[in-house]
Design a protein around this nucleic acid. Structure first.
Lengths: 213, 213
DNA sequence: GTCTATAGAATGATAGAC
DNA sequence: GTCTATCATTCTATAGAC
């Protein structure tokens, strides 16, 4: 029993990982309702009944996927330091969010669809963790404004702008690829995108240097 | 026959409108797969079989909804004039996109989900209309850069930033409301958001005046 | 044009042999 | 732990009475 709780058996660990990986992809592509346990099991390379052995319901599986998304969100949140230099804090945060869009686009898509569906599963996380974090960062930005370090813009809409722009590279990757002649952005193109976003936002709030370039 | 083609009967027109309105809402909330013809019919106030009389398949209904979205997209696209003043052209376009997010949030959500699902229905529109429009606007922005009217940023990523930021107010309205203590943004708040977005982007590319304020 | 009833297919989930 | 077989439900779509 101790054994099963602390270090799961090898096949269990392997199967759970395969299922979660397949589930993230299918939920991102088709949404919760569109995803079928049959398809997830196929992509994970196991029979459907086996999936239900590890995750009793589709909803339980979906919950596990959204929980993984929280940890990624928190990872990015921590890069927005409470430091006195807005150029540093913002360019680090924007870069971190952009890299997450590139590395974990599935999580971003699941998040986006969850919000569009009214956040049936993650409302609690929005109400507490996200809201508190946002309030604390708004205070930091307001302090920068009071210290005349940046222009007097509304911090809330600045944050929304950063979220929207960075997550766009995950959620709308298909559209971006279409505009790019059907190819994924190369590493160089993605680096250009990061620097353009940092440049426009920093200049946009009155910070002359982008920290890059 | 001429009658039926040119001026549809009154109940037909009324029912089709009710169905399309309900369908846009349900597709936006639940995605194509999650939407059921039963639910759409209920919201339209008619029996399910009647819905299938007007729209033979769920996909035909969905296609009609996405076609309506195209006309809204084109409406906004036209506000981005080929004029010599970047401040005018961009602030008009951003404001138009923001107003569309407020007025037609359902269309924006359907579009977003369609992209996340790989654009099974609108790929053709992306490949031609959207791509050509984007290419022509990139040329205009490049001309502004050559004329030293704006900073030398990459036009593509500027456009993505505008799309992402403005559509965020439709697609992520639920998250924005949660941050706003569960209330929709008031007209005044939304006006502040528009002006903040215009202000940051215009300053971000080296235009001192926002055309507002 | 409208609606009841239902066919036919797909899905989430489980029982029970191995 | 794994997998075959299957149940119960739900969904799209249609037939046919009115």
């Amino acid at each position: 029993m101790n054994d099963q709780l602390e270090k799961k058996s090898k096949p269990r660990r392997k199967n759970e990982e395969a299922i979660l990986s397949a589930a993230a992809a299918v939920f991102a592509e088709l949404g919760f309702a569109g995803a079928t346990t049959n398809l997830i099991a196929q992509r994970a390379g196991i029979p459907k009944a086996n999936l239900h052995y590890y995750f009793p319901t589709k909803e339980a599986l979906y919950r596990t996927v959204t929980n993984q998304i929280f940890s990624v969100w928190l990872e990015a949140a921590e890069t927005f330091d409470d430091c006195d230099d807005p150029t540093d804090a913002l360019s680090r945060y924007i870069r971190a969010k952009m890299m997450i869009s590139r590395k974990y686009p599935l999580g971003s898509k699941v998040w986006a669809q969850e919000i569009m569906h009214g956040a049936p599963q993650i409302q609690d996380f929005l109400d507490h963790t996200v809201k508190n974090w946002t309030a604390s960062r708004i205070k930091i930005i307001e302090r920068w404004i009071a210290q005349k370090k940046i222009n007097p813009i509304d911090p809330t809409y600045l944050l929304y702008m950063i979220w929207a722009t960075t997550q766009h590279y995950a959620d709308f990757a298909h559209q971006i690829n279409t505009m790019n002649d059907g190819h994924n952005l190369s590493d160089q193109q993605f680096e250009d995108a990061i620097n353009t976003v940092i440049d426009i936002i920093l200049h946009g709030i009155g910070l002359g240097e982008s920290g890059e370039a």
